[in-house]
């Protein structure tokens, strides 16, 4: 649906060349919620703007539904842009127009008849849950409400693609969750392909099915969210994952436990099926070993459970060893080395 073929974008800033996007090749499939994550300055914002040609690639090709964007006339490009909705970190609503006026704007550009505009605007405001705010002006709304207006406006022309430029970065966590739910509905109920950029890993794990990690203009990791999350290859990706998933307690805390008598501390990670079975209790009962969960989390990514537990086993040394051996066949388990110095 959206294809980047070896795309680069170079800016000239004060006679210096800045490579915002370097040799990026990736494909966003129809129906995806595709997330691009990177720290600020990674080039993700530029990448996003290549999709509707707000930025023109220096080299390479961007294709949408097999159409090379570079081949379009100015008029055809404007037509295409109407099929790509866009929302922004700072919402970019028209302060001189009401909520309904903002949503109606792209329809007015198309010359849609007035009655049809009114019908469609009401329908969209209903969809985003802001029917009662139709006559308000943007400045009277909260951040979350503004973004809802932004989404309604972006959906007005029935786009096939919605691109989101840090759409939740200016919002508090609760509002972020609401907006992400709304984006998920946009994808599920309206079948719109979503391409979003963010610097927040939890946005990716909450709604995306595929992810690209960007650094210095390059895509350094690309794949299904669950794969990238469970087996990150690049150190930057690992840093992003740690930001939502601190998998071990601090060294100080581990040492405290160790000194207090927890000598067998193990980290267990498991995905999917293993979480459905009472594996731990079955095995530990069998060997008469007790365990205590000292740290951990279980999270859902793309409908899969992903568990990470830190356990302290108590009991006879040999029996603990045997229990661990048996567990190793079922789940990923490794001893947590406590720094005793």
């Amino acid at each position: 649906m959206i294809e980047f073929l070896d795309v680069s974008k170079t800016f000239k800033v004060a006679k210096r060349e800045v490579h915002a996007v370097k040799n990026v090749s990736l494909t966003v499939n129809k129906g995806d919620i595709f997330g691009v994550i990177g720290f600020s300055g990674a080039g993700k914002s530029t990448l996003l703007r290549l999709v509707n040609l707000l930025e023109v690639p220096t080299s390479g090709m961007v294709k949408i539904n097999d159409t090379d964007l570079a081949s379009l006339s100015a008029k055809d490009l404007r037509q295409l842009r109407r099929k790509i909705g866009m929302i922004f970190q700072n919402f970019n609503l028209f302060s001189s127009r009401t909520v309904a006026g903002n949503v109606a704007y792209p329809l007015k550009l198309e010359g849609v008849p007035k009655a049809e505009i009114e019908r469609r605007t009401a329908e969209l405001l209903e969809f985003v849950g802001l029917s009662d705010k139709a006559k308000n002006f943007p400045e009277q709304l909260s951040g979350g409400q503004k973004q809802r207006v932004g989404i309604a406006r972006a959906l007005a022309t029935n786009p096939e693609i919605l691109i989101c430029d840090e759409a939740t970065s200016a919002l508090d966590p609760e509002t972020t969750a609401d907006i992400l739910k709304l984006l998920k509905r946009v994808n599920d109920e309206l079948g719109i392909t979503v391409l979003l950029i963010t610097h927040e890993m939890h946005v990716i794990t909450t709604i995306c099915n595929r992810v690209a990690v960007m650094e210095n203009g390059e895509v350094i990791e690309l794949g299904e969210v669950l794969d990238v999350f469970t087996k990150p290859q690049h150190p930057t990706t690992q840093r992003f994952i740690e930001s939502v998933n601190k998998d071990l307690p601090s060294a100080e805390l581990l040492k405290e436990w160790h000194d207090a008598g927890d000598k067998h501390i193990y980290q267990v990670t498991f995905t999917g099926g293993a979480t459905n079975q009472p594996v731990l209790s079955q095995v530990t009962q069998k060997y008469d070993v007790h365990f205590n969960i000292v740290y951990g989390s279980v999270r859902e990514i793309q409908g899969h459970l992903l568990g990470n537990l830190v356990l302290s086993f108590k009991g006879d040394q040999d029996k603990v060893a045997k229990a661990i051996q048996e567990l190793q066949a079922i789940v990923d388990i490794k001893e947590v080395i406590v720094d005793e110095s």
Binding site: N52, L54, A74, R82, N90, N92, L93, L109
Partner: peptide
């Protein structure tokens, strides 16, 4: 706000519009 102009461009507005 230049963002507002960018938004209208993204919605397919011509320069005159």
């Amino acid at each position: 706000d230049p963002g507002v102009i960018e938004a209208s461009k993204a919605m397919g507005a011509s320069p005159l519009q």
